[in-house]
Design a protein around this nucleic acid. Structure first.
Length: 305
DNA sequence: AATACCTGCAACCGCGACTAG
DNA sequence: ACTAGTCGCGGTTGCAGGTAT
């Protein structure tokens, strides 16, 4: 499909730094008319900018919800953990840090954390460390990243997991993705956050996610592991993840899921704590605990399958 | 004081995904 | 089903201010 040349190349448009007058015009316009329809916004607002530029300026700088000031140690810790989980999915990471933008986090990562991690290169994979050690945590991830790339899944059908229904673990109105998402349904199990991958942690049983339980009852479930469920995976997505650490992963696992192309958004729900759920967290510590839980779940999954 | 180099941040660019017709 | 338009994301660049020489 054809794509128009970037509007920024149109003649007569301002480029570079925004003036305070431009900021004011854009802010006032969005206050009145709301976000969206960026393409035509500059013309309607009377700005000599391209829509893309307006969108970026609003999202990264003018939005009233944007948090100013330095990244706090708690935020840095979260960024490091989320990055080890999601990779360079800055928008996703930013979504879990209220008031921070993807651009800000990306810049912060490149200027601070990655640099520190590169300089230190000290293996250290325990959690709840002082923040000064947080970069060390990432340094390990940088050496051998364990990134679950949340791309390429679209949930189109429901997962029917009989024993879950029997156990009352699944609510009737729960979306299919949520049913499949381990961390989401094991949210209360925030114990023993040990991030040393491959290391057995106490309380593993209590952390069992629905997917884990599937594995436990593998014999009886056998071929109906995921029934009528389009589990769409990006090439190298889970396979990368599994190949990385999951020695002994059942060789027929791939046969149990259908693999298709995909959009990233649904998979985020499938694999990880839902964004809404995380955004509902009012404090960073709670959010960190949820992320820990996600990591735990992935750990447990790796040990069991 | 002048210059070079470094750092951090804002903005740009290109591409893929999504959507409406 | 196809196409064109639009949006959103991640990588990259450019620039201003700070620091070292």
């Amino acid at each position: 499909m054809g794509r128009k040349p970037c509007c920024s190349k149109e003649a007569g448009l301002n480029r570079g730094a925004w003036s305070s007058m431009e900021d004011q015009i854009l802010t006032e316009y969005i206050k009145l008319h709301g976000e969206g329809k960026w393409r035509g916004l500059p013309q309607r607002a009377g700005l000599r900018r391209c829509g893309k530029s307006c969108r970026l300026r609003w999202l990264n700088y003018l939005r009233p919800t944007i948090k100013r000031g330095n990244i706090t140690p708690e935020e840095e810790d979260l960024i490091i953990r989320l990055h080890s989980l999601l990779g360079n999915r800055w928008a996703l990471i930013a979504g879990r840090l209220p008031g921070r933008t993807d651009n800000e986090i990306k810049n912060y990562w490149h200027t601070k954390i990655a640099k520190t991690a590169k300089a230190q290169q000290i293996p250290n994979v325990t959690t709840n460390q002082p923040i000064s050690e947080a970069a060390q945590l990432h340094s390990t991830a940088a050496i051998k990243p364990r990134v679950v790339r949340t791309k390429a899944t679209r949930c189109t059908k429901a997962v029917i997991i009989p024993f879950l229904a029997q156990d009352g673990l699944v609510h009737n109105n729960e979306p299919a993705a949520a049913v499949a998402a381990g961390p989401t349904t094991s949210r209360s199990s925030m114990v023993d956050h040990d991030h040393e991958y491959g290391k057995t942690s106490a309380g593993t049983e209590s952390l069992l996610s629905p997917l884990m339980m599937i594995s436990e009852k593998e014999n009886e479930m056998s071929c109906s592991f995921i029934r009528d469920f389009d589990f769409e995976l990006e090439e190298h997505l889970l396979s990368d993840f599994f190949n990385e650490d999951l020695v002994g992963f059942p060789s027929d696992f791939g046969n149990r899921v259908e693999i298709n192309d995909a959009s990233r958004k649904s998979e985020e729900k499938l694999l990880l704590t839902s964004e809404d759920e995380l955004l509902d967290c009012s404090d960073l510590q709670t959010m960190a605990a949820l992320i820990d839980s996600d990591l735990d779940w992935l750990q447990v999954l790796s040990k069991t399958l």
